[in-house]
Amino acid sequence: MKQGLAEINELVGVWGSLLCNNQGGLIDSAPPPEFNQAALENIARHSVELLSTGGESVQGLKEVVMHFQEKRLFILDMQQAVLVVLCNPSIDISLLRLTINIITSRWEEDSKVQKLLSKNYLERL
């Protein structure tokens, strides 16, 4: 899993990435060096809240891209967990989506990753 996150981070414009459960608890991360655990947990919690809130009004909401002046936040609902990617505004979102799809498809076939996701699975509140 760590390797998958590291591969996402290799993409130009990606700053860091993390995977959290459906209640915002961190499962794994490959964060930028300046981020501490509390900052990551904060991002994870907010991302899950955003997916939950958005999901109430937009059925089938699977992906959210948040635009800030200095950064972009790409949030993907993987059902079992939530993937969050911190990016620069210059990020090629299509290339990011393609890269993430390749990695998540690989995770689907990886029994170790599936075991870890099952262990950390929680229903969304």
């Binding site: 090629d92 299509s94 290339l95 989506r97 393609l98 799809n101 390749i102 498809s105 690989r106």
Partner: peptide, 21 residues
């Protein structure tokens, strides 16, 4: 990348789509 993303959505088999991507 946008073009690749769009055309890859035409591939229904997820494994083949991921391989193409």
């Amino acid at each position: 990348a946008e073009l690749v993303e769009r055309i890859s959505l035409e591939i229904r088999d997820s494994a083949k789509r991921a391989q193409f991507q």
